[in-house]
């Protein structure tokens, strides 16, 4: 049975590119949900069963790191794996993200193969 993924990015373009990359990577997702910032992502997670989240870091309203912190404090959603997809993949920021529960990171620009390598073991 296909999985449900949530893509969190303030850029509509990037959400479409990530969706396309997921399809090209050959991962079987039955549903792709979208949110434009961390707060919207929390709202989507509260209303839907999601198997994995792909989140940007630099976003207005609620950043990716703030989203991870809020998610970790919510028992109902804290175990849903999150992979960061961002231009921000320096060791300092990724260490912060992992300390807050992120399972991996993909640097923009990325290829479908890289998405597959990172997400595959988590599904």
């Amino acid at each position: 049975m296909g999985k449900t993924v949530l893509i969190v990015d303030d850029s509509n373009t990037m959400r479409k590119i990530v969706s396309r990359a997921l399809r090209q990577a050959g991962i079987d997702f039955s549903e792709i949900l979208e949110a434009s910032d961390g707060q919207e992502a929390l709202d989507v997670l509260a209303k839907n069963k999601v198997d994995i989240v792909l989140s940007d870091i630099n976003m207005p309203n609620m950043t990716g790191l703030e989203f991870l912190k809020a998610k970790a404090e919510n028992a109902a959603i804290k175990d849903i794996p999150v992979v960061m997809i961002s231009t921000e993949t320096g060791a300092d920021i990724i260490d912060q993200a992992k300390a807050l529960g992120a399972k991996g990171a993909v640097k923009k620009p990325f290829t479908p193969d890289l998405i597959n390598e990172t997400l595959g073991p988590l599904l």
């Binding site: 850029s11 509509n12 373009t13 990037m14 630099n58 961002s86 231009t87 921000e88 993949t89 320096g90 640097k107 923009k108 620009p109």
Partner: peptide, 15 residues
């Protein structure tokens, strides 16, 4: 939005 994302990725590459 598309051009803004290119500038974002380009700046990320520089960083």
């Amino acid at each position: 939005d598309a051009l803004g994302e290119i500038s974002n990725m380009l700046a990320g590459g520089i960083k």
